[in-house]
């Protein structure tokens, strides 16, 4: 391909035979592919192990259970992934973002307004919440983890003033959507798939996605290329907020009654799934299709536990242990690549 003035001096450098054109998204593909294979591997292992113990595990009931559990977790994980990939560390206020959007959605419906108003209001509420976080992080130049920890607590307190519990109208279109199925799977599963696919494509093939990855991977380099860091950071928070807002809309559709603190149980699983998917906390790296596998794996755990007949608390023990393992792997990768 070249008149190789510079010979490949680094034996660790990946080689591609003859510089043949690879798949379009070949940025880090080998790593993503390895992540995808290993997660798919453990997922299959879990499925096989459960099936050996209980052959009736492979059923449409299990499929329904797992896809249902994946749905909201998956949308939230994309929201979290946007923050992590763009170098925003973590958004710990995601549970509040979810509930405040869901609350806005059902409030609109309870006031007799139509679904097509309620859904955008829910999404816009998520964006507004993201904007609040983003503004404090960007203009206050503060650590996002601390900021979102604080806004998470503050937001919960504010919500407790405004409502003790919120209910979606039982006969509303959104509620009926939440109870329905499409192609044999829960309706709310499909928006999750769409968000993952669109998000994945956006990261890989749009200018916005490229720049978010760059800002997360090396903010100084991105800034030196004339990329406006503040705008990108703010944009990533608002975009992630919109996705969390959609999660809130879907959440309200399947949860007939929720309290301000109802989002808390998603926190651990969402962060665990994101990190297990190889979306490094150091930013600039991540593949949403691997994330989908990771979510599927996490969502399978409680169902498997039920099939094994283990004590219920084991699901949390496994998920917590996985989070620690995932963080460990992330740290190990960083250390190794730092050479």
């Amino acid at each position: 391909m070249t008149t190789s003035l510079i010979t490949p001096a680094d034996p660790a450098a990946p080689r591609s035979p003859g510089g043949k054109t690879r798949r379009p998204d070949s940025r880090g593909l080998p790593v993503s592919a390895r992540d995808a294979l290993s997660i798919a591997g453990v997922w299959v292992a879990l499925i096989v192990a459960t099936t050996i113990v209980r052959p009736d595990f492979l059923s449409t009931q299990s499929l329904l259970a797992i896809t249902f559990t994946m749905s909201i977790t998956g949308i939230l994980a994309v929201s979290q992934a946007i923050i992590v990939i763009s170098g925003g560390l973590l958004d710990l206020s995601l549970p509040v973002s979810l509930i405040v959007s869901a609350w806005a959605t059902v409030t609109v419906l309870n006031n007799g307004l139509p679904t097509w108003v309620a859904i955008p209001v829910g999404i816009l509420t998520g964006m507004a919440w993201g904007a609040l976080n983003g503004i404090i992080v960007v203009f206050g130049k503060l650590n996002p983890i601390i900021v979102t920890l604080a806004t998470g607590f503050g937001g919960l307190a504010v919500m407790l003033i405004f409502f003790k519990s919120a209910q979606i109208p039982a006969q509303s279109d959104l509620r009926l959507y939440g109870l329905g199925r499409f192609l044999g799977l829960p309706n709310i599963f499909w928006p999750m798939v769409m968000v993952i696919v669109l998000g994945g494509l956006a990261f890989a093939y749009t200018r916005w996605g490229r720049r978010l990855i760059a800002v997360g991977g090396n903010a100084s380099a991105a800034k030196a290329r004339g990329i406006n860091l503040r705008r990108m950071r703010l944009g990533s928070f608002i975009g992630a907020g919109a996705v969390a807002g959609l999660a809130g809309v879907m959440f309200s559709a399947v949860t007939p009654s929720f309290t301000p603190a109802a989002g808390a149980s998603f926190q651990l699983i969402v962060i665990g799934a994101v990190i297990l998917a190889g979306i490094s906390l150091s930013g600039g790296k991540g593949n949403l299709l691997v994330l989908l596998l990771s979510i599927g794996f996490f969502a399978t755990i409680p169902t498997s536990i039920a099939f094994f007949g283990l004590a219920p608390a084991w699901a949390l023990v496994f998920q917590g242990a996985l989070l620690i393992i995932a963080v460990g792997i992330d740290g190990y990768r960083l250390k190794r690549t730092a050479r």
Binding site: I6, R15, S16
Partner: peptide, 25 residues
């Protein structure tokens, strides 16, 4: 690719992550 060839900058592929490249590259 064209420009890198023209300037004689030899890299394995323009598609691989720059992480594995040498300092000179």
């Amino acid at each position: 690719r064209e420009v890198l060839t023209e300037l004689g900058v030899g890299i394995q592929s323009v598609n691989v992550s720059v992480k594995g490249m040498s300092g000179g590259q």
